[in-house]
């Protein structure tokens, strides 16, 4: 069984996240880059299966800037067998269409039985990549799974929505995305950190994947405006008529 886990490097949610107002792109210098936590959970799903099934091969795949190898090394330290990094200047500011195209091409090159992704990233939050990758690969896509069971030839899972709970099953090869309902990831340990250095690590360019992005084929950010600073609120001091003042305020703002 060959499992490809999609890893995305994102700005630490504990840090200060900003957009660059000139380029419209994420300001990566603003916060420390980390592995998106949902991707660690995705890796944990793969590792749990591999713990029980010898012969399972796990490949961590990421696209992104020069800082990404640190994130991929963490995935290797946790137990992934090898890592692939797609690094290319032409990917700066890539939209989800191009991103999905690159990921699918890389997965085809790696080979796979199962692709595991997080359901939504903490930075872009598009949620579309897993489905788009499944479509591009021409395999079933089962997304937003709260529970996952992998067998030799199929993956089953459960998707909870407001409308109800769906049991889903797909024959392999397939793509799945998982939610935060799945268990926390294990920590890399010292043995893993040391071993990570010796594991295969491949860096690919868009040329290696036969992809030539064009301006026309992607969405362009036209402008970015900072959210205005919050203005000071209205303070009502109770001098016996606070209720009336509050009602007047709500009425004036057409809130009642």
């Amino acid at each position: 069984m060959k499992i490809v886990v999609l890893i995305k490097e994102v700005p630490d949610t504990w840090g200060d996240r900003r957009l660059n107002s000139e380029t419209g792109l994420l300001d990566r210098a603003g916060a420390e880059p980390v592995v998106d936590e949902i991707n660690e959970r995705a890796l944990e799903v793969a590792l749990t299966y591999a713990d029980a099934q010898t012969g399972t091969e796990i490949v961590a795949l990421a696209i992104g800037p020069a800082s990404v190898p640190t994130s991929l090394r963490k995935a290797l330290g946790m137990g992934a067998d090898s890592a692939v990094h797609v690094l290319d200047d032409a990917l700066v500011g890539a939209d989800i269409t191009l991103t999905a195209q690159v990921i699918a091409a890389a997965i085809k090159r790696i080979g796979f039985d199962l692709v595991i992704a997080g359901n939504v990233s903490t930075d872009g939050g598009g949620s579309a990549i897993p489905s788009m990758v499944a479509e591009l690969l021409g395999v079933p896509g089962a997304t937003y799974l709260n529970a996952v069971e992998i067998t030799v030839d199929a993956v089953t899972g459960r998707r909870e929505t407001e409308a109800g709970s769906f049991g889903v099953k797909a024959a392999l090869p397939a793509v799945i995305s998982i939610t935060e309902a799945l268990p926390d990831a294990r920590f890399p340990n010292f043995k893993g950190i040391m071993a990570a250095k010796k594991k295969p690590f491949e860096t690919l360019s868009l040329g290696d994947l036969d992809i030539t992005p064009t301006e026309e084929s992607r969405s362009i950010v036209l402008n970015v405006t900072q959210r205005p600073a919050r203005t000071a609120g209205t303070v009502i001091t109770d001098e016996g008529d606070a209720g009336q003042q509050l009602a007047d305020f709500l009425a004036k703002n057409q809130l009642i």
Binding site: R186, F187, N189, F190, K191, G192, M194
Partner: peptide
Amino acid sequence: NGFIGSHYPVDVGGGG
């Protein structure tokens, strides 16, 4: 998580 015995050799179960 391998946080006990990180300093012992791998062949006795440590972290090396």
